[in-house]
């Protein structure tokens, strides 16, 4: 018996669904991502320049900049503002380090009702976990190849 989901009728329907999909205004989305993402980087640059002007080394200032952005993101997520920024900015708010911090704070808040250990603490890494894992794996592989070959 031919399964309905593999029938020609189903395939025709799937094509029709594609045709009827509302077209997203890609240009507008891109512009908003550009503005939000650019602005977050601009805030970062401002913090960094300020710290360097107080005599901090460029590298240390860079780390403090990341920490500051993470703090701001945690605060805005806690206040319920970051998801509103993201609704507007899309990838613009996901790609900067603030998006990484948001991905830790949001589940921590949400799953606190399931307890401090398996709720809050365990769920913090739902999205950040894979980022850390693949970051470390790729860094080790690429870094090692680079170090051994060159």
């Amino acid at each position: 018996m031919l399964k309905e989901r593999e029938s020609p009728q189903a395939k025709r329907y799937a094509r029709l669904v594609e045709q009827e999909k509302p077209r997203v205004s890609l240009g507008f989305n891109i512009l908003r991502a550009f503005l939000v993402g650019g602005s977050i980087c601009l805030v970062g640059e401002t913090i960094k320049t300020y710290l360097i002007s107080y005599g901090m080394s460029v590298e240390t200032a860079g780390i403090w900049m990341s920490i500051s952005l993470i703090f701001l993101s945690a605060l805005l997520t806690g206040l319920g503002v970051y998801d509103e920024i993201a609704r507007f900015g899309g990838a613009g708010s996901a790609i900067p380090i603030t998006g990484f911090a948001n991905s830790i704070v949001a589940p921590a808040m949400e799953f606190r009702s399931e307890g401090a250990i398996l709720g809050l603490a365990a769920r913090m890494f739902v999205i950040a976990g894979p980022v850390i894992v693949y970051g470390l794996i790729s860094a080790t592989v690429f870094g090692l190849i680079r170090s051994v070959l060159l």
Partner: peptide, 9 residues
Amino acid sequence: GGVICAIGQ
């Protein structure tokens, strides 16, 4: 930064 985010979008 904006361009990277735009590509991401």
